[in-house]
Every structure is written in structure tokens, then in C-alpha cells.
Design a protein around this nucleic acid. Sequence first.
RNA 1: GGCCGCGUACCCAAGUGGUUCAAGGGGACGGAUUGCAAAUCCGUUAUUCGUCGGUUCGAAUCCGACCGCGGCCUCCA
Length: 503
Amino acid sequence: MTLRIHNTLSKQKELFNPIVAGRVGIYLCGPTVYKPAHIGHAVGPVIFDVVKRYLTYKGFQVNWVVNITDVDDKIITEAAARGVSVTQLARELEQQYVDALAALDVTSIDAMPRASEYVPQMIEHIQGLIDRGYAYVVDGDVYFDVGKDDDYGKLSNRKPEEQFAGTRDGLLGKGKRNPGDFALWKAAKPSEPDDVKFPSPWGPGRPGWHIECSVMSARLLGETFDIHGGGMDLIFPHHENEIAQSESLTDKPFARIWMHNGLTRFNTKKISKSDAEMQKAMQELQLTNLLAKYPSELLRFLILSSHYRAPIDFSDSTIDAARKGLDTFYRLFERIERLTGSNPYEAGVRIEQLFEVATDPSAHALVKDVLAEQLRFLEAMDDDFNTAAAIGVLFDIAGLINRYIEQSRLEIRRSEQPRTFAAAATHTLVFLGRLLGMFLRPAKKQSPGDDALSGDLIALLIDVRNQARQTRQFEIGDLIRNRLDALGILLEDRPDGTGWRRK
RNA sequence: GGCCGCGUACCCAAGUGGUUCAAGGGGACGGAUUGCAAAUCCGUUAUUCGUCGGUUCGAAUCCGACCGCGGCCUCCA
């Protein structure tokens, strides 16, 4: 099986072969820390977390870098508005972001470099571009000269002459040679705080937006590396400019593969910072708020339920549907533990290890079918990380296991062999889910308000109810069930007794 | 205006030339099971893939036009 990845540069899926055999370098554009991160900021990290998990599974050693932009106009403005220092604001929001990613089980990032800590290297890079004639200085600013870069625009398919033809003079700025020229270095303004003033050969100032990614990726991954990721909205100008300033200095290809994820939408609109109507929604869509409201696994599941290049529409109804879908797996896991005594979250025999001993026809069929599904899962992942299709396969496997449980009447007769196979199939299911960063640990079954006493009381009510049912006093039984239902407790009468769960 | 993406059932969402390609989830409706439920299982729910043309023996899938939605072209994951 071979992995193919869609490359924005070529606009098609390409066979993946790393530069150095067995090793993969990935750079993902992280956030500018000037406002709390929203759900859209989690999409890239979750997807690349899966990319890393999958590549690791395939035997690659992955080095994944996500940058933090902590020097920027917007941070300066926001910090001034809040009356805190730029550094203070940036660190606070960075910590929030890191915490949110940890909550989402995005724990596989290898380095999170800060722009502010690579300024000397950026200056070196900029000086190199000046020396090579690709950049010029104007009153303490340094601009990249897009006119000197023959293939400028190859990523976003734009030609600077056409793109900026007839643009207003305003874009020309002070002393720009071409309207499309972008700042590599911005001279400090007197009003700006000291913690964003860095000394440079061109006077005090700070780096432009794009240069940090070129420099930090080169330092941490090499001048040419395997995969560069980010949101679709970064293709132009950010990534285009990264390519220009990197390749103009090194004469080497920058990133081999560009992966761009679709943007998260709310009411079909991009979650944007400037839209007034969006401001209110933004509050709700902040990662910290969402993580307080929903299990993180649900957010991850929702993100992975559509292909990474498609936009995700975020709404209560999509969340709700995702939650109900996820419950299918949770119920299966509970069922398996109850019927087989095997904990799906703990290491156990997977079904592929039982191929030889599956002599019983239905067990044999289960093994065969689950293995076929496993293949489909891997094929989906190999096809540009099609997590949506992969999740579809997980549902199919869950169906196979439930069907097998029904067929072998496991609820009634707990025969040895069906228990073993059902448990093993579930271990395979969990194993595949974990390639997506799912099913890492048992889902929370209880609410914060639950305690031992309420559990005992429910058990007591169940006993009373079953006594009543045995004497066919169903009104009493139903009363208890309905009243518990109103409290959010769902009773389930199974062949082996009555269980309960929260709605 | 230029560039890019999208438009698949009631909703979400895979599929980008042909035998299982119309996955999967939610919802709804039948059936099995249950005292009744819940859960689970079985079945039904798109002869059709925005519209109209074209290419082809054959298209949701390729080409063209059009309609609709969105993104970028200024900061943005």
C-alpha cells in the first residue's frame, strides 16, 4: 500500500516519498497569539496529529514543528488595548493554546518555536536576500522584490503583474518597487513597546509576518523538507511568500508537499475576526469554551468526520449527530466489557492474531470481514488521509461485532469462543481508532455530580423495580423508569439483568 | 474583475470513468427482541449525484457554459 497526498503545488495527489528514507519533517503554521484560539485553530493540529500517528504507524520517524507567532501588529494593538505587555499577552495565549491542544490529545508536536526567539536568524536570512539582490531597504523597512522572483505565484497560481495591476497607489506604500512586494523587516514606530523592538542592521524593528516560517523551518527541519501545512487561507500571501523568500536564498525547493486544510465555518461563513456578527459566535467557538462544553473526543471526531480539505460546518446539529454516532462505539465497548470481561481500552489480542484458530464458521466470517474492513481503513488513510472514509469503516466494524454478538447469542450464553472473538475484534477496532487519536481512554461515563451514593440509590431502585416486574406490577416498574428517565438516567433491561446509563 | 474550492438523499458526509460507485453517520418508517421500553440486529428511505450541453461503448466522476454558495486577492488556521 502506498500513501498518496494531495499537493497544493501540483493540485493533485502525489505518491509520498520522504527526502530522507524513513524520516519525515512536517511544518504546520501555528497561531498568531493575539486572541483566544477558536475551533478553527484546532483543525490543523488535529489533522496533522493524525498524519503523524499514521506515518508513525507506517514506520516513519516524524519530526513535527508548529510555530507560535508572538511578534505581530495585532498582538501589539491587542496588548495595548488590554494594558499588558506584548510578551505577557503572547505567553498567556500561547499557554491557553497549548493546553487546549493537550486536551484534544494533540501531544505529538515535537517543537513549538516562537518567532521572537529566532530574530537573529531572520536578520541573517534577510541580509542574505539583500546580498543576493532579492530584497531592498527603504527607510528602515526591508522589502522582498517579487519582480526578481521568476516563479513567484506558483503556489497560488497568481502572477504579480496581473494580480496587482490597477491597484490603488496605497498598496505601493512608501517606496515599494512593486505593489506585491512584502515586508521582510518593519522599522519600529516610536509608539511601539520595547519588547517588539529588535536591533538590526537597518535599525530597530521587527520581522515581517512570513519570514519566521522560512527561517524556523529551515533551522529545525532543513532548507528542504517534506510537508508544509496550514489553513487554505494561508496559501496567499503567506505561503507564497515563504516559498519566495526561502527559495530565493537557497536556490533549493522549500517544502515538497503543501497540505492545506479547509476552513471551519459557522452558519456557512468562515470564522473571521473582523465580521461583527461573527464576534458573538467567536466567543462560543473559542476552544476553551468548547472544551468546557463538549468532550474533546467529540470535537476530534467531528473534525475527522469530513475530509481535511473540505470545509467543516460547525453547529449544534452537527455536534449532536456526531455525539450520537460516537455513542455507538461507547456502547459497544461497554457491552464487550460486560459480556467478555475484556477491557477494550487495555492491550489485548487483536482479531488478526486469531486467524488460524477461527474454525467455527461464524467466527471465521467475523475474522475475515474485520480483516477486510481493516484493509479498507488503511486504504482510506493511504488515500490522502481520508479520515471520513476511515471513520465509516469503524462504524462498519462496530456493526460486524454487534451482529456477531447477536448471532452467537452472547447476551444469553456466554460461550468461551464468541467472547474471545468479539473481544479481539473490538481490540482491532480500538487499534484502528487510535490511529485517528480516538478511543485513547474510556469515555467519561459519569457526570461530575455523581457519587457512590447515587449509584447505590439507582441500584436500589432497579431492585425494587425488578421485584415489582416479577409480580407483573408494571405500573410501579414503569413509574420508576420514567422518573429516572426524567432525571437523565436510562434503564436498560437486558437478558442478564438491568443496567443503567446517563442520557 | 483575477485566482481557488464547493454544490451527492430530510440533515451531515465518502466516492473523481465501468463489474459491490452511489460508503458511513444522524433522522424517519417497518420488522425481530422486550410485559412495554432502551440497546442491538434485520429491512426501507438518491434509477440519481446544482442546471444545460458535449466527449465516450460507458460519467456523479472528463470538457464547456450557466446558476448558487464560499474562500483568497489587506490580517487570518
